[in-house]
């Protein structure tokens, strides 16, 4: 029996099922990502676990106990909201200490734990700032510290990195992963960024229109997508003669599928090609190794493993 169990969880708004019979087990200490396009029901799922949205049907169990019977304030979950939802009128230390205060932790211990957690997220020097006086990335880490300090049974993250610029996001991904490894908290991350989901999680749940299309380790879902939707969502894919082939698996060779380069785009560490072939337009990604590459209009042959 898994630590957190969602069983045929459903939420309807009128006739529309935002979440439709979602079943999922999350092990203790595991990092699971809910991944899917906008409006597929990720936030609704998270809010049901948190207790802010009531499921239409289905069950949620935490360590074998019925979570739906417990009030949101008593669930003991750590949540990082997409908008951070920091308390604007409190300092960073007061924000982080709020949960401990609610638990009745004595002031002295509170101070130590707040200090420790702020150090963990690298904000030890910012304790007396107000949220307004901090950057987006710093605010996000305050929100993370506020959720972690109460030692939650589960950490719920709703697109916590989507407001950050690409560089900061990458840094925060690494940091988030490290913190989660250090603390060992069971974590559910909601995101529509497939790279982020694959980089961070032990398993991903690819959602589409309220249903889980595939649940599994990132590389497995990427290599062996269960449905065309998953294949498409987890990255670029070519449909050649009924088979789906990842663009980076295709190489230029002396023989193979003949074609002509229609466009060639330089993307720094790789080249992106669109090649006209008898089987339609094929996308090819080649590492930029410094070698000379075919140019636009050149005749090429495409080869990949498993092609007869």
């Amino acid at each position: 029996m898994a630590f957190l169990e969602l069983e045929r969880l459903t939420k309807s708004f009128g006739a529309h099922n935002a979440v439709d019979g979602l079943t999922l087990g999350v092990e203790k200490g595991e990092f699971v990502a809910l991944l899917g396009p906008s409006g597929c029901g990720k936030t609704t799922t998270l809010q049901m676990i948190a207790g802010f949205v009531e499921p239409t049907s289905g069950a949620i169990r935490l360590a074998g106990k019925d979570l739906l019977a417990i009030r949101p304030a008593r669930r003991g979950l750590g949540i990082v909201f997409q908008s951070y939802a920091l308390f604007p009128h409190m300092t960073v230390a007061e924000n982080v200490g709020f949960g401990l205060e609610m638990q009745g932790v004595a002031a002295a211990e509170r101070r130590t734990r707040v200090g420790e957690t702020l150090d963990l997220v690298g904000l030890g020097a910012f304790a007396s700032r107000f949220p307004r006086q901090m950057s987006g990335g710093q605010q996000q880490r305050v929100a993370l510290a506020r959720a972690l300090v109460i030692r939650p049974q589960i950490l719920l993250l709703d697109e916590p990195l989507s407001n950050l610029d690409a560089k900061l996001r990458e840094g925060m991904q690494i940091e988030l992963r490290q913190i989660q490894r250090t603390v060992g908290t069971t974590t559910i991350l909601v995101t529509h960024d497939q790279a982020e989901a694959m980089a961070l999680s032990d398993r991903i749940v690819v959602m589409n229109q309220g249903r889980a299309e595939q649940i599994g380790p990132p590389h497995e879902a990427y290599e062996r997508p269960a449905t065309p939707f998953v294949a498409n969502f987890l990255g670029k894919t070519n449909l050649v003669d009924g088979n789906s082939v990842r663009p980076e698996r295709i190489s230029f060779a002396a023989f193979g599928l003949a074609g002509t380069v229609r466009t060639r785009i330089f993307q720094g560490n790789h080249w992106l090609y669109q090649v006209d072939t008898a089987s339609g337009l094929v996308t090819v990604i080649r590492q930029n190794s410094g070698e000379a590459m075919p140019g636009e209009g050149d005749a090429v042959h495409l080869a990949w493993e498993g092609r007869a």
Binding site: F87, G99, Q103
Partner: peptide, 14 residues
């Protein structure tokens, strides 16, 4: 932001 109230609830506030 209604989420701010939810955040307080999640942290155990009545």
């Amino acid at each position: 932001d209604p989420q701010v109230e939810n955040a307080a609830v999640a942290l155990g506030a009545g």
